[in-house]
Amino acid sequence: MSFLGEGLAEAARLLWAGDARTYHAVLVSLLCTTTAVSLAALLAVPYGAWLGLYRSTPFRRLQVFSLRVAMSVPTVVLGLLVFAFLSRRGLLGGLDLLYTRTAIIAGEFMLAFPLLGSLVYGATARLEPRVVETALTLGARRGQALVKVLGEVRPALVAAMLAAFGRCVTELGIALTVGGNLPLHTRTLATAAQLELSRGRFAEALAPGILLLVLAAGATMLASWPVRGDRL
């Protein structure tokens, strides 16, 4: 326990001293994660809701099954997939995107998409079919009915976004494999913590961990703001 206490004190001291590399890693983590989760949400939320609401969608069960399986793909494997495309010998090698933040975003998009899709599917599939039917009989188009229903499941939507944010901001496999852990460029809080651990500097490894907690708390507070009164 004394080690944990010392570590926390040392972490606080490091943060107070304002190490440029640590704070840059905060920005990289935030930038990559918010971009990836937003992009994934744009596609995965309507997709998941569509699967949840319109039961006649062709291959609906297969699509839901695939989403759920894809949720468990390890981040190292996602990193490798992106690597295979962006490598100099890969299909998109000419773009010179390997070891950039864009590469990290691409990987985290693939991480967030099935998670969001599957959680939104779960939230909407449980709704009474009548909600959609009513909207449709009132003259709404299918897309409009979808937006209406998403409003109904707002708390679940917020929880799904937070889950995706948490998974992306803490992931290590993608950021290491296609980010490269380059300081002041692609080093994230998670890769910074991993590096300090491999150096045997345990207290220094705790500092990014504490920052990750702060980010998660901040995101949660921000997300629950507009839905105050709703139960998350």
Partner: peptide, 18 residues
């Protein structure tokens, strides 16, 4: 001067790509 902060294998891959 690229500081990778990773194990030997990953750094070799990085050097090869770059």
């Amino acid at each position: 001067y690229l500081e990778a902060g990773q194990g030997m294998g990953n750094c070799l891959t990085l050097a090869d790509e770059k």
